[in-house]
């Protein structure tokens, strides 16, 4: 049988991979958004594992709402990216540094 800690450790590994992806990414902002999606998938796995082992559906409801918010976030994020590309001509992380203090 698979224990709860297996699921939790798996999701923590995925979470850390997403975190490292944000650290090392120097290419473009789209990959940053994808790393955020990966982190959200890890968190959702946590919620569903606890919901299964505790026999409570509230965790799955939470995942439902997280997915709703994430879909809205992606739509707006990609709209902002399109606008940024139209204004700056590039969405490289190195180039978008005009907010640097």
């Amino acid at each position: 049988m698979i224990s709860l800690s297996d699921y939790l450790i798996l999701s923590s590994v995925i979470f850390c991979i997403g975190l490292v992806g944000i650290f090392i990414n120097r290419t473009n902002i789209i990959t940053l958004l994808m790393c955020v999606e990966l982190i959200l998938a890890a968190v959702n796995t946590n919620f569903i594992a606890f919901s299964h082992f505790l026999g409570n559906e509230a965790g799955q409801i939470f995942v439902f709402f997280i997915m709703t918010v994430a879909a809205a976030e992606v739509a707006i994020g990609l709209a902002i990216l399109t606008l940024l590309f139209r204004v700056r001509g590039s969405i490289d992380v190195d180039v978008t540094n005009s907010l640097k203090g």
């Binding site: 698979i2 699921y7 798996l10 998938a41 959702n44 796995t45 569903i48 594992a49 919901s51 299964h52 799955q60 995942v63 439902f64 997915m67």
Partner: peptide, 14 residues
């Protein structure tokens, strides 16, 4: 993996 955890609806939604 979510289907293994008996969350079929969320797996299909994903």
């Amino acid at each position: 993996i979510w289907i293994l955890l008996e969350a079929e609806f969320l797996a299909i939604t994903l």
